[in-house]
Amino acid sequence: MTSQHSPKRPLETDASAFQLPGFTLKHLLGMEGVSPRDITILLDRANAMVDVSRRAEKRRNTLFGRTLINLFFENSTRTQSSFEIAGMRLGMDVVNMAVQTSSVKKGETLLDTAQTLNAMRPDLLVVRHSAAGAAALLSQKLGCGVINAGDGAHEHPTQALLDALTIRRSKGTLEGLTVAICGDIAHSRVARSNIHLLNAMGARVRLIAPSTLLPSRVDELGATVFRRMEDGLPGCDVIMMLRLQTERMAGAFVPSAREYYRYFGLDSARVRLANRDAIIMHPGPMNRGVEIASDIADGVQSVIVEQVEMGVAVRMAVMEALMGAPLDGGDDA
């Protein structure tokens, strides 16, 4: 695996001139192997960014004049907007590369794209790609910091960080909490990133899914596996639901949406199995009535909307940290 830590490879851009004390990452490719200290630095800074986003003047020009390229090979309006807003609030020039109309469609390889982008001298690249390992590949070929916004079924580190921030703000800590991740684990980069982060921070991870949606030996990543909601939910502080792609409910992995909801959907009866103060999360977009009941998604225990807000804060924090911007800088701009 490619190292996302700075000491191993010097960067060519000016950004390397900054170095945040104690922070070791130059790329954010995944949560696997990221230290609790780096995670804590990111979460602490993200927590401060929440206040920035809540005030009337949301600009914070710590990264003024730097260039952020959003390179999304898969459509995702939500995630792309979140990164775009984060970059703009830090004063960056944000460019969204529309892959649908770019030369990728004309047969350019990922490495050709990387070389082309490199020549434009970006400071940060955010990439989403359907192939696992795509972000790591780009990080090897580009002179700038790379943030993985989802690579296949591998990792989606900013989602895990925003989930962690949401939990921390609700529960005060991650340590010692019992977190159930429910649903399509097999195809989920969100699940993998969360498993790594939660383990690093001392939470206990449970996975609840039908066996067809559990990848081989997933328990060895650091989780206890359950095949029934009724078995896995009791004692949980956090219930994290995953989206089930429609094409996977047509008999290949799960027979039908109605059977999935019957046995794995989160409804009020199942919520009651967890701890009384359990919070309910979903990375979105939700399939209401498939993995989660509407009244639960909109209920008092749901923090799903807050997750979206935390997304911008976390991405701001990640960009600043990777660029080595000091926390107290920029607010006067």
Binding site: G251, A252, P255, R258, E259, R262
Partner: peptide, 15 residues
């Protein structure tokens, strides 16, 4: 086991 005995899509085993 499969819808319409077509050998492709699982039926609703649970239900």
């Amino acid at each position: 086991i499969t819808r319409g005995l077509q050998g492709q899509e699982m039926t609703e085993f649970g239900l």
